[in-house]
Amino acid sequence: MNSRIAFPFLTLSESAVKASPWSVALNRDDWFPAGDFLADWDSSSTIRLRREFQLDPDIATLDLGISKDDLQLSLGVRIGTGPGRLPRLIVYHDHSEIVPEEWRFTFELEVLGSGLSSVLDITTEFTLSAQVSVCDALSPKRVGDRLWQDRHRIRLEGEEPRFPIEIADLRSLLGDGTAESAPWYLHWSPRDWTRDFHGAIRLFLNRERPEFVERIEAQDAAILQTLMADIMGQVCERLVNEQEAHELIEGLEPGSLGAQAVSWLNHAWPDCDLGFIRSVLENKPGTFRAAFLAVAEIRQD
């Protein structure tokens, strides 16, 4: 289930739902475990996906506080695609009721490659498929209430790394006498915090600094820590300084640039409000940046 959300009703535990990892096959080829990257995909391919489920009705009724007669569930599978952390477009949506007593089953589907781009984003969920008649105060009651959910993302193209990085000629990119010799440059704009993080930000490494690029490629811990801290610091500083930061943060979607900044701020100052963080930035800017250096180290662990 989504750990960001405090559900206002009881949900299914991991012991009530046993779901195998997704298996994948390209065209008529053999099945193999779906990792986070699917090699050899192109838009003329057909992707087949398969997953096995086993529900334990006894545990499920206990989890949800409902009777076995009311345990009427649906399995929902949504396939989204497109670059970014949230799918740009849902291209496949299946919702089917689970036949009572057939608690063990296999789900299989085919997705045409022509409609896909960059990522295959698979959301699986169990929802209530009928209104519940007798239940506890905290039981789910309404059709569609989400009881269990997971998400698996498969990159289809190699060009969407976990963080968008590119080796570039900073001279032609920046055209600035001083900045062009910097080892890196973070390209981003604070104009739109609602933009998808991956589309809003890109790290350029200076082609003229091959020794630096090599250290990044070799995953040099100290360099990565410094880089990450710079990125987090730059972005968070601007967000904290936004005049209407409170209102802005309330409206942010998961996966957006702003939501990512809020997540970094929460890591650096757990349980602290924006006012406190702003006072750190105003009065102790060194501490503000040092916090991100520390967080960057933790994140590498």
Partner: peptide
């Protein structure tokens, strides 16, 4: 929509 699968409801609902 975070707690209820809205797009799985019937059109009328």
């Amino acid at each position: 929509n975070e707690i209820r699968s809205m797009s799985s409801l019937s059109q009328a609902e």
